[in-house]
Each structure stands twice: as structure tokens, then as C-alpha cells.
């Protein structure tokens, strides 16, 4: 419905529609402000140019009334924009329950994508139309920013943590994927495409990728290879370590009395910074794995831990 507006980017997701409306309202208001200022300026410049003979008597001296009027008027208008913008922002950044989850790793200078089924792609992301897709994003080096102009969604991908972003495409087709945070030499070419497909096509595409193992299965292997199962495994008796079954999405009580939701970023922290916090009731013996696991491996482990069950709400 926005395609007739000139110089307008594609509108291909529910997110984009919501942002469009706000943007149009703001363009309207900005136009109004500009027109008011220009009209006032022009009128005064013409009526009161040196050569004009209009009366200059009775200059307004009580300026306070006007100042207060303007302050209130602009503040009122600004508050409306603020509330509207903030509402949409919260909505944009709090993902609803996801239909599909995809893992994205940014690195100089490419986007690596891993689907839960184990399908991988580079600088491309295939997704089904009309489905809520949730992205879990990591960076291997510097800060990147994941931006899809046609969806109006963007989030920086900061090394050292995981970020999430969601969208629901409403149009099939190919859309630009960009990096909008300067990330070094080839930042300009760190681009790719989002391929939005009908559900059956998407299923076919997934099948045709020829993968043997899902992400969680690959994670299970890592879980054994790195010795996690020795402590966290079902029949591990040597060490008193928490079971990870059903952990994802629950509220975890820490030794220092604080609580955290066991989302992806938490799981990542557990593996890389176990020294900085301890789960209540357990000895602080979990080894530090930083430096041993790349972002890709971490995401696999996390996918595995998630596959052990848990509450869906972690998606929010």
C-alpha cells in the first residue's frame, strides 16, 4: 500500500508497516513546522523590508506569553512523538514467540547464517513468509549492525554478547541485507540478501541443502568433546553440577542473590565467564571456556542446551 509514494523503500514486513506510519506522521509534522517557519519568515521579510511602509508602532514587549505558548505547544507535540516512537521501539525489540529461529554470526566481512536444521549460508538468509523469525546474533570480531531496509529493522551485533531481533515478512522476494556499523576495510560490501519464500518452497529449500546433522546434534557432540557432559551429564556423579535439562527460559537464582533469565546471552555467559557468577547452591568449579570456543561453536552448544527443553518465553 506504500508503493506509490515516490522515493520510498520496499515495505515487506509487519515491522516496516508500523514504522512507515510513524515516519509518515513525522514527515507531516516536520513539513508543517518548516512551512510555518518559512511562511512567517517570508511574510515578515516582505511586509517589513526597509522599503515597505507598514507601521512599526507598538512592538510586542510582553514576550513571555508567546514563549510559554510555544514551549507548551512544542512540548505537547514532542511528547506525542515520544510515546508513539517508544511504543513501537519496545514492540520492535521484544520478540513475540518465534515460529523460526536462525543464528547469525557477523565477522569481517560477511554474515554467516546457521539454521537449526544445520543448513548454513553466507551473506544470504532464507526465510518463510508470514512467519515470525527470530534471529540470535553474535559477532566474531568488531561491532557490526544487521539491517534490512525493507523490514525497517536493525540491531548492532556486539562482540562479547548475543543480540536478538525479529521480523515477520509479508512479501516474498529478495531484499537487501546490510551492515550499517562501520567495521573496517570492506564494510561497504558486507551485504547480502534476505530471500523470503512461501512455506512449501522454504521447506524444499531446507531439504535440498543436504545436511546430515542439526545444529543441536552438532552441539551435543561438542558437549561431549569439551567435557561438559562429564559434569552436566545425566549420570555424572563426580561433581555436583546443575542439570541443563529444561533450563532454557527459566529464572535462575545466583549465589549473590540476583536472578537472571536463562536466555541465549545467559547461556553464553555461563560458558565464557563462569567466574563472574555462580548458580546458587553449586560449587564454583565450572571451568572457563573462553578462548576455546568460537562463536559458531557457542551457538551450537546453546542450540543443544535449548533442545534439552525449557520455557519458550526466553524468546522474549
Amino acid at each position: 500500500m506504500y508503493h506509490w509514494i515516490p522515493f520510498w523503500p520496499d515495505t515487506a514486513a509487519v515491522n516496516a508497516v508500523v514504522v512507515n506510519n510513524l515516519y509518515i506522521a513525522e514527515l507531516g509534522l516536520s513539513g508543517l513546522i518548516m512551512v510555518t517557519v518559512v511562511a512567517m519568515m517570508l511574510t515578515f521579510c516582505i511586509r517589513y523590508r526597509k522599503a515597505a511602509s507598514n507601521s512599526r508602532a507598538d512592538l510586542e514587549t510582553k514576550t513571555w506569553r508567546f514563549e510559554i505558548l510555544w514551549t507548551v505547544a512544542t512540548l505537547g507535540a514532542f511528547l506525542i512523538l515520544f510515546v508513539w516512537g517508544a511504543q513501537v521501539y519496545i514492540w520492535l525489540y521484544k520478540p513475540p514467540p518465534a515460529d523460526e529461529e536462525v543464528y547469525v554470526v557477523g565477522k569481517q566481512w560477511m554474515w554467516k547464517v546457521e539454521h537449526p536444521g544445520g543448513q548454513r549460508e553466507i551473506d544470504a538468509l532464507h526465510v518463510p513468509v508470514n512467519k515470525v523469525v527470530r534471529l540470535v546474533m553474535a559477532s566474531e570480531d568488531v561491532i557490526h549492525s544487521f539491517f534490512v531496509p525493507a523490514f525497517r529493522i536493525k540491531h548492532d551485533v556486539v562482540p562479547g554478547t548475543l543480540e536478538t531481533l525479529w521480523f515477520k515478512a509479508t512479501k516474498t522476494g529478495i531484499f537487501r541485507l546490510e551492515c550499517t556499523q562501520y567495521c573496517g576495510l570492506q564494510h561497504a560490501t558486507m551485504q547480502g540478501e534476505i530471500v523470503v519464500m512461501e512455506a512449501p518452497d522454504y521447506a524444499n529449500w531446507l531439504d535440498s541443502q543436504g545436511v546430515e546433522e542439526s545444529l543441536a546434534q552438532q552441539g551435543a557432540e561438542l558437549f561431549r568433546a569439551h567435557g561438559c557432559s562429564g559434569c552436566h551429564g545425566k549420570n555424572s556423579t563426580i561433581i555436583h553440577a546443575p542439570s541443563l535439562t529444561g533450563l532454557y527460559g527459566t529464572v535462575v537464582h545466583l549465589q549473590d542473590g540476583s536472578i537472571r533469565v536463562a536466555d541465549e546471552a545467559y547461556l553464553r555467559d555461563c560458558i565464557l565467564n563462569p567466574r563472574s557468577f555462580t548458580v546458587a547452591g553449586y560449587p564454583p568449579v565450572m571451568p572457563d571456556f573462553s578462548g576455546q570456543l568460537g562463536e559458531g561453536d557457542l551457538l551450537k552448544l546453546i542450540a543443544y542446551i535449548k533442545s534439552l527443553g525449557g520455557k519458550r518465553e526466553a524468546g522474549r
Partner: peptide
């Protein structure tokens, strides 16, 4: 200034930030 207002509006900033 008016385009600054647009950038101050959170949801619009999400789409135009870094561009």
C-alpha cells in the same frame, strides 16, 4: 532540527540509524 526529532523518535531511529 526537525530531522533531529525524527532521530529522537526511537522506532524511526532504528530504521535510519547508521545511514
Amino acid at each position: 532540527g526537525v530531522t533531529g526529532l525524527m532521530l529522537a523518535t526511537l522506532a524511526v531511529d532504528v530504521s535510519v540509524h547508521g545511514t
